[in-house]
């Protein structure tokens, strides 16, 4: 068996995942990146998106929202604000949220506050990530 890396995901409401995996693919703020076993020490911020990992040929995926991740001594730790497993995501709700956020963004005119736009954008990103993760589970 190939070498593995220890994956850990912690959120304010508790640890979510703690497993030895083959590869981790994460949504870094500078773009998606992959981490294999024995990666050099690495620190990156994480944006909302899909975190996937492979374990013994099977692929798993999670939805994570903002935070950061640290790689050191063959261990990758994600410290994120929230993390949901594909099986926990309510896809209908996520789709609704996506539509709502899109509508709000479409209605937004130039004079409206920037904060609202940022919030709607963030909501949209979260919804999109949820949908993506949840659809994967369906396949």
């Amino acid at each position: 068996m190939a070498e593995t890396i220890e994956l850990e995901v912690v959120t304010p409401s508790g640890p979510v995942v703690s497993e030895d995996v083959d590869i981790v693919t994460a949504p870094g703020s500078g773009g998606v990146f992959g981490v294999l076993a024995n990666h050099a020490p690495f620190l990156s911020t994480i944006k909302v998106g899909e975190l996937s990992y492979k374990k013994q040929g099977k692929e798993y995926s999670l939805m994570v929202s903002g935070g950061f991740c640290e790689v050191s001594s063959n261990k990758i730790t994600f410290i994120v604000e929230s993390c949901e497993k594909g099986s926990d995501i309510d896809i209908d709700r996520a789709l609704l949220a996506k539509e709502r956020a899109e509508k709000r963004l479409a209605q937004m005119t130039g004079k409206q506050e920037k904060i609202n736009e940022a919030r709607a954008q963030a909501a949209l990103q979260r919804a999109l990530a949820r949908v993506r993760v949840a659809e994967k589970r369906g396949r």
Binding site: S29, F42, S44
Partner: peptide
């Protein structure tokens, strides 16, 4: 001692800016 070996993405300053509010 080991922190100097870290690869930062984006730069450590930018990460710090995200980290402080957190």
């Amino acid at each position: 001692g080991q922190s100097s070996d870290y690869i930062y993405e984006p730069s450590s300053d930018q990460i710090m800016e995200v980290l402080l509010p957190l």
